[in-house]
């Protein structure tokens, strides 16, 4: 009994009032991930948009619906918003990067808020959430390379977005369970979905010696993001540890093959 209590208390330090995602203010307010956009001479970003609400309609819905997209730059400042009409039960692949100007930088975040929140969500006291699929092209690649969303990060009320992430009481580690190896190059993109400014450390640890070989520090504004680059040499095997007060510092990972030319994207 006492052992169980101690175990609960120990876990409580990490979980009490530290949800991954808070509840939005109202049941009619939709939720979105903060997806990452990249735009440059070599990057294009896409999003497959479809109306989630119309899947919940008992008859095949004909009602025209829309989604609002809000763009933020890397320091978390809103740079643009737009409304996209969607045909129910169809998808529309949007080139997200076409909305971004050169002055806005080469990476940042965006959120997608659906206008159609069906009554069944409200009846079940649930919130409709857009968790993705974003895709990227690099160097005019033929395929779009897909990755799904990570977080229920942000909601919207009366045209004004607000974040749902909370900060941890204690600093915690996110250990990416992926081997960094084979001469590959990596870019790790992390978002700040909390109301607090966040300091983040990326530590690269040699798995043979268990010693840190490199670390980099970043700070992120609320709504903002940071990008950390790393390159492996030869057959060294490295693992990444991210320390921060984010409840879950799960990064988007962009991987580039050097021995064989390829590009891959996934989340932690």
């Amino acid at each position: 009994m006492i052992k169980l209590l101690i175990k609960k208390l120990k876990r409580g330090i990490w979980t009490y009032r530290q949800p991954l995602s808070s509840k939005p203010r109202s049941l009619i307010e939709p939720v979105s991930d903060l997806f990452v956009w990249r735009k440059s001479d070599i990057w294009q970003t896409y999003f497959d948009l479809y109306d989630i609400g119309s899947f919940y309609s008992k008859e095949i819905s004909k009602k025209k619906v829309s989604a609002k997209i809000i763009f933020f730059n890397r320091v978390g400042i809103k740079i643009k918003e737009c409304k996209i009409d969607i045909e129910p039960n169809q998808k529309k692949c949007i080139e997200i990067s076409s909305f971004i100007k050169k002055i806005d930088g080469d990476f940042g975040t965006f959120a997608i808020f659906h206008s159609n929140v069906p009554d069944n969500f409200i009846e079940q006291k649930s919130y409709l959430t857009e968790r993705g699929f974003v895709s990227y092209k690099l160097n005019r690649s033929v395929l779009r390379h897909y990755v799904h969303g990570n977080f229920d990060a942000i909601s919207i009320s009366n045209n004004s977005s607000y974040l749902l992430g909370t900060s941890s009481l204690l600093k915690r580690e996110y250990r990416l369970q992926s081997n960094l190896t084979n001469d590959d190059k990596y870019e790790f993109l992390l978002i700040n979905y909390t109301h607090d400014h966040q300091k983040v450390t990326f530590s690269f640890v040699d798995t043979d010696t268990n010693k840190e070989i490199k670390s980099e520090h970043f700070s992120m504004n609320t709504n903002g993001c940071c990008l950390c680059k790393f390159e492996t040499k030869g057959n060294e095997k490295i693992r990444l540890v991210i320390s921060s007060k984010l409840v879950m510092a799960r990064p988007f990972v962009f991987r580039y093959g050097q021995k064989k030319i390829f590009f891959d994207v996934f989340h932690g």
């Binding site: 899947f55 409709l128 959430t129 897909y146 990755v147």
Partner: peptide, 23 residues
């Protein structure tokens, strides 16, 4: 020459909080 791979979200993840399993 190029490969892309991803899995779908289970439809339960269209909703958060509340009685999402009933939904």
């Amino acid at each position: 020459i190029e490969l892309s791979l991803e899995h779908t979200h289970p439809p339960a993840s269209f909703a958060i909080h509340g009685n999402r399993w009933a939904l």
